[in-house]
């Protein structure tokens, strides 16, 4: 029992499923088709089209992260004070997460489409049709919809662990409700906020599905460019090079999480 050899399958899997593939990614990204070392795939990020896609990705995912944070924090604050049936209410907020990601995104397509449900309702009440789909707004909204639980969950985890006696102590010492939030709850929920930010920002930054489904293929994010290099464009080295650039941003946010969430409170 508890033999060290029990780690063997795990180690094999980590090496074969994570480390070697990542090494392959770097190998492809740092070589050209003939196999000679080059930096051109990395530097390709500075080509106008790619740079624009990266910029858009950063912009949209930042917007999505901010919106998720602003929407989630009040919910987590309210949930903190819910006494009856708290589990049920948290469950209601998380249930959509269990519906297939593609189905959820597709649902928004159905709602936003030119001949879709929202426009159907608009014309039914006599309003002109609006152009909703294939806009940056639609993409950001789709991101928010898909990733909101990733923000809510860690913040709720951390906030619900703050003992009531701490907020009571703050009231007792003269703090107003707003001061209790800004001086006690907010600083104590930093680990949750940081994990939430990372858990929303990374998938939003790298998505190609949402931009494809709600952007109609007209708005290209960095994820779309990479995906196309691998599927349509067939320049794997270039795709791998751009992936490496993207990973730099992921690493930065991982470092961010490691700095602020030392005990891993947000993830658990």
């Amino acid at each position: 029992m508890n033999k060290r050899s029990f780690t063997a399958p795990y180690i094999i899997w980590i090496i074969g499923g994570t480390l070697i593939p990542l090494a392959m990614m770097f190998y492809y990204g740092l070589t050209d088709e003939s196999g000679t070392w080059t930096l051109q795939n990395i530097l390709a990020i500075f080509e106008p089209g790619n740079l624009r896609a990266l910029w858009k990705s950063l912009l949209y995912s930042a917007a999505c992260t901010v919106v998720c944070l602003l929407l989630s924090y009040p919910i987590a604050l309210i949930l903190r004070n819910v006494k009856r049936a708290k589990g049920v209410i948290v469950f209601i907020f998380l249930l959509p997460m269990w519906v297939n990601f593609l189905l959820r995104t597709m649902a928004w397509q159905v709602l936003l489409e030119k001949g879709g449900v929202i426009n159907g309702i608009l014309s039914w009440i006599g309003l002109p049709k609006a152009r909703l789909i294939n806009t940056p707004g639609a993409i950001i909204m789709g991101m928010v919809y898909d990733f909101l639980p990733f923000m809510l969950l860690p913040i709720n985890n951390v906030l619900s662990k703050v003992p009531n006696s701490l907020t009571e102590a703050a009231y007792d010492l003269g703090a107003s409700k707003a001061q209790v939030i800004t001086k006690v709850l907010l600083p104590l929920s930093v680990p949750g906020i940081v994990s939430g930010i990372t858990m929303v920002f990374v998938p939003a930054l790298t998505t190609f599905v949402i931009s494809n489904m709600l952007g109609g293929g007209k708005i290209l994010l960095i994820g779309n460019i990479i995906e196309q290099e691998f599927t349509v464009g067939d320049n794997w080295n270039l795709g791998a090079g751009l992936s490496i650039v993207m990973m730099i941003f992921i690493l930065v946010s991982m470092a961010f999480i490691a700095k602020f969430d030392k005990k891993g409170e947000g993830l658990a």
Binding site: T18, M25, V202, A240, M246, M254, I257
Partner: peptide, 20 residues
């Protein structure tokens, strides 16, 4: 190491596995 697939972007996980 356990955190890598957790925090890494799915697109990187998927592509790197495919490359391998």
């Amino acid at each position: 190491l356990n955190n890598i697939p957790l925090l890494n972007a799915d697109i990187v996980t998927g592509l790197s596995l495919m490359l391998m």
